[in-house]
Structure formats: structure tokens, C-alpha cells
């Protein structure tokens, strides 16, 4: 076994830790923003109220703001001495600053606009006549949403999640500002990559992590493509069964 290059030896322990952490942070960021994404997409697509434009702006802010500003804002709000963070710490002992949970929040906030955008577009494409038909069949609004609206916007949900996941995976500026660059705690793949570029003799590590990032991003895109295609086939009915 020793003459064979084992999987373990492909990356250094530090690189493995960064990869594992990145996947954990991105998955949590995507999963946690999912319900909020659906809710905000629904509000933006289906309701009109005085603060509509403001909400739309706030949701899209991370897309146009320098990530460092978002990280700083998170530090101010959720830091241990922050407005909400301080209360969370004294009341529940919860702390986000300098932990992987904080990294997940930073990634989630940065990914949110992409998530919402894809979901909103697919929601707007859902035929409201079908929802009306479901109502006349006795389905209450929430059941209509779960059984008609949500399944019909599934392609958009998947696209939103994949885009969000990819964005979370690449998050750098907000993360390093909010939770710093602590190996095995907050040092995600991009942060580790950055560290290697700053370290003499880190070229090999830099290259390995860059290739890894490309592979993960491509993999995510391919999975979403396969899911979307399978879904489309199902939704449009197998025409060959005629």
C-alpha cells in the first residue's frame, strides 16, 4: 500500500480540513437560507406593499456591495458585542464570531440574492390558473402552495440552491472580515488558498486547491443540470407513452 499514492496523501491535512469545512459551511448556508429564500421569493413575486421596493433592494444588496462591508455589518450586528449577537450570547450562550457557524451565516447572506432571484423567476412562471383550479377542488391556500406551486417551481428551487451553494463555496471577503481566518474552524477553501499564496513554497498547495475548486463547482453544475433534465421529462409527461 505504501508504494501506491493513497487518497489521503493527495492533499495535506490542512487542505483536507479546508475542503471539509467549505462543504459543511456551504451546505449549511444553502439549507438555512432555503426556507427564507422561498418566503422572500413569494413575497416579492406575489405581493405588493409600500416596502416592496425596499425589500427587493435589501435582498439584492450583497450582490452589489463590497463583501467586506457585508462582513463588517455582520460583525456589528452578530458579533459578541453586537446588537443581536450580544443578546444571543448572554441569553443562549450562542456565539457566531470566529466560528464555522459565523462562516455559514456570511456565506448564506452573500448567496441569498442568487437563491431568491432564481426562485422568484420560477415562481413568476407558475400558472396561477392552476392554483385557482386547485382551490375550487377544495385545497386551502397552504395546500395549494405545497402541492401545486412548490412542485411547479422545483427547477427554479434547484437552480437557486446550486447557484447559492456555488456562491457560498467561493465566499471570501465577508467571511474573513466576520470570522477571520482560523485553520480548522473558519479557514474555508478560498481562505486556505489565499493563505498558501501568501506563504513561501505554497505554490503546489495553491494549485491543488484551485483545481479542487473547479472540480467542485463543475460537479455542482452538472448535478443541477441532470436533476433539471429529469424533472423536465417528468413534468412534460413522457410523450412516448401515447
Amino acid at each position: 500500500m505504501t508504494d501506491l499514492l493513497s487518497l489521503q496523501d493527495l492533499l495535506s491535512p490542512q487542505e483536507w480540513a479546508a475542503l471539509g469545512l467549505s462543504l459543511k459551511v456551504s451546505l449549511w448556508a444553502t439549507a438555512a437560507s432555503f426556507p427564507f429564500g422561498v418566503l422572500v421569493a413569494w413575497i416579492l413575486a406575489r405581493t405588493r406593499f409600500w416596502g416592496h421596493g425596499l425589500l427587493n433592494g435589501v435582498v439584492h444588496l450583497p450582490l452589489v456591495l463590497p463583501p467586506v462591508v457585508v462582513g463588517y455589518a455582520l460583525l456589528v450586528v452578530l458579533g459578541r458585542n453586537g446588537l443581536v449577537g450580544g443578546w444571543l450570547y448572554t441569553a443562549f450562550g450562542l456565539s457566531f464570531a470566529f466560528t464555522w457557524k459565523g462562516a455559514a451565516i456570511a456565506a448564506g447572506v452573500m448567496a441569498f440574492p442568487l437563491l431568491v432571484r432564481a426562485m422568484r423567476l420560477s415562481l413568476e412562471a407558475v400558472d396561477q390558473d392552476l392554483e385557482q383550479a386547485a382551490q375550487t377542488l377544495g385545497a386551502a391556500p397552504f395546500r395549494v402552495f405545497l402541492t401545486i406551486t412548490l412542485p411547479l417551481m422545483l427547477p427554479g428551487l434547484i437552480t437557486g440552491c446550486v447557484l447559492g451553494f456555488a456562491r457560498a463555496l467561493g465566499e471570501f471577503g465577508a467571511t474573513i472580515t466576520f470570522v477571520s481566518n482560523i485553520p480548522k474552524e473558519t479557514q474555508t477553501l478560498p481562505l486556505a488558498l489565499y493563505t498558501f499564496t501568501q506563504t513561501p513554497g505554497g505554490e503546489a498547495g495553491t494549485l491543488r486547491l484551485a483545481v479542487l475548486a473547479v472540480i467542485i463547482a463543475l460537479g455542482a453544475l452538472m448535478i443541477s443540470e441532470i436533476l433539471a433534465r429529469r424533472l423536465k421529462r417528468q413534468n412534460q409527461g413522457s410523450r412516448h407513452d401515447r
Partner: peptide, 20 residues
């Protein structure tokens, strides 16, 4: 009374079948 509690069957001009 909201639509879903009216117990009124409705056949529309277009069939409006659920495609999924």
C-alpha cells in the same frame, strides 16, 4: 366563504390539469 370551502365544482374553458 373562501373558494376552497365553497364545495363548488368548476370546469374551466381550458382544462387546467396539473402537469406534474
Amino acid at each position: 366563504v373562501p373558494v376552497h370551502k365553497r364545495n363548488v365544482g368548476y370546469v374551466f374553458q381550458d382544462p387546467r390539469l396539473f402537469p406534474h
